[in-house]
């Protein structure tokens, strides 16, 4: 065996043996000793962004989200109670072994972040969406979104923050509420969205993505 081969093998063995797990840089989702902040940075950030401002509209923005709402969703994923496709495809596995303390820590981490608007929408749609958000659609029996989600879409406890959320994500979730029973904790939204047209959803989502927020 050549010296270079022996050196290479020894180097790999040394690295393997020497690399001790650092709890502050772990990606182990089954170790309750890993701090929530570490999991947020090492794992969650891959899709939701280091500061909760996800780049891809496939993944919701979590920055400044209501802490209580994040806790409820993570527990919903963990128990499989929340079963929308993207929920079980991505989040059932991520959440399956998290402790209550880790869930609380993750919620605290993301709720403390500052939300950044993803970008402007179509002005006509935005104006139409603003009307729905502020006044609802009385003729269709749709109440104003602001009633529960706050005047500035900031949310309140179990009612999520919707301001600055990706419009594609909002449309997807409104569709889930309207057409499925995959989010039983959001049953109130089933009635709210019952008579929303696709155009209504697009409008309100466009407004939420860029709405003036606090």
């Amino acid at each position: 065996m050549k010296t270079s081969t022996i050196t290479a093998v020894l180097a790999i063995a040394a690295i393997s043996a020497g690399c001790t797990t650092s709890p502050t840089r772990s990606r182990n989702l089954a170790d309750h000793n890993v701090p929530a902040k570490t999991l947020a940075q090492q794992v969650c950030s891959n899709c939701h962004g280091i500061d909760g401002n996800s780049v891809s509209p496939n993944f919701p923005k979590l920055a400044a989200q209501q802490e209580e709402y994040i806790v409820a969703q993570l527990k919903g994923f963990r128990s499989h109670r929340r079963a929308d496709p993207e929920g079980y495809e991505y989040m059932w596995g991520i959440s399956r072994s998290l402790s209550d303390a880790q869930i609380k820590g993750l919620a605290a981490y993301f709720s403390a972040q500052k939300s950044i608007p993803p970008g402007p929408g179509n002005p006509k749609l935005v104006a139409e969406g603003r009307k729905i958000f502020e006044s609802g659609l009385p003729a269709q029996g749709v109440p104003p979104c602001s009633t529960c989600h706050g005047d500035h879409g900031q949310g309140n406890g179990q009612f999520p923050r919707v301001a600055y959320q990706h419009s594609d994500y909002v449309i997807k979730q409104l569709t889930v509420f309207q057409r499925t029973n995959e989010r039983p904790d959001g049953v109130a939204m089933k009635a709210v969205t019952h008579s929303l047209s696709d155009k209504n959803m697009e409008a309100v989502a466009a407004y939420l993505q860029q709405m003036p927020s606090k």
Partner: peptide, 8 residues
């Protein structure tokens, strides 16, 4: 990240 996300 070395196929390390998740649980063994």
């Amino acid at each position: 990240t070395g196929y390390t996300i998740g649980e063994r």
